[in-house]
Design a protein around this nucleic acid. Structure first.
Lengths: 315, 315
DNA sequence: CTGAAAGCGCTTACAG
DNA sequence: CTGAAAGCGCTTACAG
């Protein structure tokens, strides 16, 4: 076929506005260039950032991202997973709504197509791939930091055991508190919401004694605590120290800025995509569990930092 | 066909894990139950919230949402729009990256399938549907409010004319300032980023005189200004008042809380879905332009509110 | 090397 | 009322 013909065909196609029908292509080829992700709540800045990173990684591989929101509800999660599977997406990233109750749905879908759990996992998931952070070590970093800042009495304000993340952070808190010989007040447990942090601040203020430091389950709770304490005239870090978890933009926006356990969002997305590609190449591949390290990101909520010039002159 | 047979078929299908292949269904039917949305940045809390509302509205109609991120870049936007069109989605919601340069891509896609512009629009778009807020009135609400709080000199810190929202808010600022007889300092113009607000605060502090109030182009810029002023010891609302725009969760999280122009996210999604359904029903339907009203949401960044009990006793 | 046919999984319209 | 055929748009494998 001559070059001229090729050009003519292309030009005519363009002129007529021809566009490949991705549906026909996908049907013929068994799947198309779409990957799905199911998150509990896109409006949580952590998941928004994570989705952003995944979208970025995937677009380099010419893959599109279909985003679904489970609202953290079991039936919605199943419906979303089945909708994605029914569309024969190449693979699915899932942040399970529940540690225990999401297991059947996640396992079922994982039997049908490549699936990688992200951030949270379900129980007995040795056959399933997972990419997330070392939550226990993250909480350890936060606790050691406030201990160094002089905190003796601490309290955990976080989420319940319904999610793997909730239970991992909560248990790590108890373990590390003991290791460090700190005193722990009764924890306050609910959900990852700003409003919860707000009300938790009130409950803490009403206690006979305020703890020296509050370890929050995530940045939303931490910023809620910050706002709640501000309303009630409790000074942070003057009266109490606060740490968050995730390292979202919220930590910059609040005042004082928040000390938080930084999750490596870009690396999570990279590792997640890598795992998914592995599963796509070899459907029988065992599910690897990837635990990435967190880093402590210091803000002003755990005490004013010694400025670098001052710290130099002190040395 | 007997009931027993029906049941047997269903049970067997279930046992074998049969699942309708949405691809075949879609190919046969010409389209499937998927709607696409292209936003400039999912990690902007405003767009995250908007996506959340759209997802909510659509799921009631059994429609799935395919989310794409243009990063505010022209080529990426075109690529995403074409990918969605190639998949023969039912329709597309688009937040155009540019007022002028996005026009060809948006128009082209809109000729192929139902498309509704959301939040931002392109120029000469009388044929295209649009749903957004009355930005001019929103800026008016903010300016009248700071004027009532005693501000005489004001400044606009917002985004440039590349987006319809940027130009609408900026021009409204100039118009209303004149109407109210306020004095305006030289505006500072860049992009909708927290970091920009941060640097703008520094530039304002370095001016010979601080304005009485800063009208920010959105909540990200406003919270950036807040954080920037806090770092440089400028008191808000003591030394300067600040207003935001959007009404995101950021307005609650910052300290002081932010007075902001609240966009009715849920109503925008409702109206957007309604317009899209109209276009789907009647492809030739003229593109309606829906402008929804904003409301002023008062925070502490424009002066401590008189508490309701105090205001009652004062009356 | 070119061109026509087969088939992905579905649903609708039609023949029996 | 039941069952087989046609066709959505694509790509791959095969016949000419």
């Amino acid at each position: 076929m001559s070059e001229a013909t090729t050009r003519l065909v292309r030009e005519t196609a363009d002129r007529l506005g021809y566009q490949v029908n991705a549906l026909g292509k996908a049907l013929r080829e068994g799947s198309d260039g779409v990957v799905g992700i199911v998150v509990p709540m896109v409006s949580n800045p952590f998941y928004a950032a994570l989705v952003h990173e995944f979208e970025d990684q995937l677009s380099r591989l010419n893959l599109k991202l279909l985003i679904a929101d489970s609202h953290g509800e079991l039936d919605r999660e199943l419906e979303r997973l089945e909708a994605l599977a029914g569309r024969r997406v190449r693979g699915i990233f899932a942040v399970p709504a529940y540690f225990d109750r999401s297991r059947p749905a996640i396992s079922k879908i994982a039997r049908q197509l490549p699936l990688v759990q992200v951030d949270r996992r379900v129980e007995d998931d040795s056959a399933l791939a997972f990419v997330g952070v070392d939550n226990a070590d993250g909480i350890g970093q936060a606790l050691r930091h406030v201990a160094e800042q002089g905190a003796g009495t601490v309290v955990f304000v976080g989420a319940d055991d319904r999610t793997s993340v909730g239970r991992e952070r909560r248990r790590a808190f108890e373990t590390v508190v003991e290791q460090l010989g700190l005193a722990a007040q009764e924890p306050i447990i609910d959900r990852y919401l700003f409003e919860f942090g707000l009300s938790a601040a009130e409950r803490l203020r009403d206690r006979p004694t305020l703890p020296d430091a509050v370890i929050a389950g995530d940045d939303l709770i931490a910023t809620g605590l910050l706002a709640g304490f501000a309303r009630h005239g409790v000074s942070v870090p003057g009266d109490v120290l606060i740490t968050g978890f995730d390292g979202t933009i919220l930590a910059d926006i609040c005042n004082p800025t928040l000390t938080t356990v930084q999750q490596p969002m870009a690396t999570i997305a990279e590792a997640g995509v890598e795992e998914l590609l592995r599963k796509i190449d070899d459907t029988g591949a065992a599910g690897a569990h990837v635990r990435l390290p967190t880093t402590l990101r210091r803000g002003d909520s755990t005490g004013a930092r010694v400025t670098s010039s001052a710290s130099h002159s002190a040395t």
